[in-house]
Amino acid sequence: MIDPKDMYHDDDQPTRAERKMMWRNIEKGIAPARAPIFFIHDLRSFAYGLAAAFVIYFAAFGAWQAVKQQMESDLPAEIKVDIAYRSAIDALEGVIPVTQPNQQNTPQGTGILTARQEQLQLLDTAIANLRKETGANDVSPIFRARLRQLYTLKLQVLQQMIEHGEIEL
């Protein structure tokens, strides 16, 4: 056997720098190590991302609420009255969502109930049409007076229905 020293020259050996460089390239070429630390890093960034999403969601919700409140407080008094009417009617209709006639057994009772329901429908249509024609933020006295009249009529109809026992509470 021949001693490698007699065969190879110093020039044939890789230098320290070459060895380092080759290893760097090899490391790049081989699959990433399956060390658990990478999993921990992934898990941590996932948790941070989730927390950040919550923070952003609540911050956006809070901002939206603040803007909404600010806008509502800036509304003219006429529109606030309109909102109050609507809220009152909605609340009343919410409590008695279905009208249940006590006099449904008699033809007269059924006729009255049908007439009341038609009245309510006509009032709803009139309110909707008025809103469509003028716009929600119209503060003109004529529009406001007409709207108030329609709301009052609707409330009166509902009041009569309650008083005459046409609605079961």
Binding site: P4, P14, E18, W23, I26, E27, I30, A33
Partner: peptide
């Protein structure tokens, strides 16, 4: 383990290269 493979690399790179 890259560390273990590095040790193998160090042990054989010179003979393969030359």
């Amino acid at each position: 383990s890259h560390a273990a493979f590095r040790v193998l690399y160090d042990g054989h790179v010179v003979s393969l290269f030359r």
